[in-house]
């Protein structure tokens, strides 16, 4: 199964090797994922990354640092990646991050707010509301950002580290969206949240 927004008969464009068939560096990556996420929870994104295992491991480490270090909340980061997935029309990514938002304590209404790029309804503290809009602006046109934009989020309470963390959330979301979109990597078997949205995109494009 590829992206829901494409033909349902169109599989991913590269081989996604199942867990029980993995060997060598690919198996090492899958083992690392299962140690963190649980047995069988090797996402299709990382099955695609496993075509280049060292890069897959580096990106998994990057994701772990982003999600588990720093001071911004998991709900903020997953909410921002949900919004980016919507911007990038990556239905697998919308499904993954919307599910992660719920796991981080968000309500269905807050997931809808992320999809509507509405930080005021995300249930975030003022600092993270400001950073959410700042990050979306940077994603839209990074070279249009100004010193005043940075000063404004600092006045809302953000530190330099918070700003870098928010921008790296954008980078990571976009990087993963690109791999999934370009290679038609579809949602994992354990995810079907927002399937209808992907199917609606396909109908709009037809």
């Amino acid at each position: 199964m590829g992206q829901w927004s494409r033909s349902p008969d169109d599989p991913p464009f590269i081989d996604l090797v199942p867990v029980d068939k993995a060997t060598g560096g690919r198996k090492e990556l899958y083992d690392a994922l299962e140690r963190v996420r649980g047995k069988g929870r090797v996402s299709n994104l990382f099955k695609a990354y496993a075509a280049f295992p060292e890069l897959g491991k580096a990106n998994f480490e990057r994701l772990n640092v982003l999600l588990n270090k720093g001071s911004l909340t998991r709900k903020f980061k997953e909410g921002l990646m949900t919004a980016l997935a919507e911007v990038n029309r990556c239905d697998y990514c919308v499904s993954f991050h919307a599910t992660a938002m719920l796991a981080a304590g968000a309500s269905d209404e807050e997931v809808k707010a992320a999809l509507a790029m509405d930080p005021e309804k995300l249930g975030l503290a003022p600092k993270e509301q400001a950073l959410f809009d700042f990050a979306l602006r940077a994603n839209g046109d990074p070279h249009a950002m100004t010193r005043e934009d940075v000063e404004a989020v600092k006045r809302a309470g953000a530190t330099d580290a918070d700003i870098v963390e928010a921008l790296e959330t954008v980078n990571t979301g976009n990087a993963f969206n690109l791999i999934n979109g370009a290679l038609n990597v579809g949602a994992d078997d354990f995810l079907d949240y927002m399937r209808g949205r992907g199917e609606a995109w396909r109908e709009q494009a037809a």
């Binding site: 509405d118 005021e120 979306l136 839209g140 046109d141 249009a144």
Partner: peptide, 8 residues
């Protein structure tokens, strides 16, 4: 002119 977020 230029990029704007939903909030903007």
């Amino acid at each position: 002119s230029g990029f704007m977020t939903t909030t903007m």
